[in-house]
């Protein structure tokens, strides 16, 4: 006999686990950030089933913001955020699989072998009111400590990520990584500004350009570089 709650629980659990697994299996980074959000939403809904209405909705609320920021950072830093050209972004995979499976097996064994106490939540308990009273009553010091920790985090984040610092800009002398050990830095290296447009091959004036063939053509190097026009 399967009750509706059980059915809902196992469906949500399947969503949480499958989307949590797909996070590391999709090429598009934005998709993987929002798959993780899906996993969090499923866990939040399980919390609602467990009669934690505040915690469940707050998880969804908070993780929505976090994963939005996560997606922005993905696009900002990753080489291939949309996954349009698949590339291998995995290392030490076998070790990682073994570690993950071992962690699951160990925790599952612990769950299975432990005689878990069974004192379920009493129906009709005002859990939200109790949480508020706990946060701003007996456990206020703990709660406030969390608040101060968050403040310290904000300051630390600004200090760590700001470009300017006491010893000059954080990115002074920074070079892209090399493709081979000891080789040349990959990618563009910032050069001193010179008149020419070295590097830009095929800079023939476009026939579609109204100024093509005019005397000013000889000064093409003095104009700001315009990329060749693309016609769909």
């Amino acid at each position: 006999m399967v009750s509706g709650t059980d059915l809902a629980f196992w469906t949500l659990a399947a969503i949480a686990i499958v989307s949590g697994w797909r996070v590391f299996r999709t090429d598009s980074m934005v998709r993987s950030a929002f798959l993780l959000l899906l996993s969090f939403i499923a866990v939040g809904l399980i919390m609602l089933l467990l009669r934690a209405p505040y915690l469940g909705v707050a998880t969804i609320f908070m993780m929505g913001v976090e994963m939005m920021v996560m997606a922005l950072f993905m696009v900002m830093f990753m080489m291939n955020p949309a996954g349009l050209n698949p590339m291998n972004m995995v290392h030490q995979e076998r070790f990682a699989i073994v570690a993950g499976v071992l962690a699951f097996a160990g925790l599952a064994a612990a769950v299975w072998l432990t005689d878990l106490p069974h004192h379920p939540l009493v129906a009709g308990r005002p859990v939200i009111r109790e949480l508020g009273m706990e946060l701003l009553g007996r456990s206020m010091l703990i709660f406030e400590t969390a608040g101060v920790t968050l403040l310290a985090t904000m300051i630390g984040t600004v200090v760590l990520s700001s470009r300017s610092g006491r010893f000059g800009p954080a990115d002074a002398g920074s070079l892209p990584p090399t493709m081979t050990p000891g080789g040349m830095p990959a990618g563009r290296i910032p050069k001193k500004r010179s008149g020419g447009h070295g590097g830009h091959g095929g800079h023939a004036p476009s026939a579609a350009s109204p100024t093509a063939g005019e005397p000013a053509h000889g000064h093409a190097n003095d104009h700001p570089h315009q990329p060749p026009e693309h016609h769909a």
Partner: peptide
């Protein structure tokens, strides 16, 4: 009992939908 927080979640997820 927490519909205001639910409304907050709706606001957050709207940002995600538009993005």
């Amino acid at each position: 009992p927490t519909t205001v927080v639910l409304w907050g979640a709706v606001e957050t997820l709207t940002v995600i939908a538009v993005f």
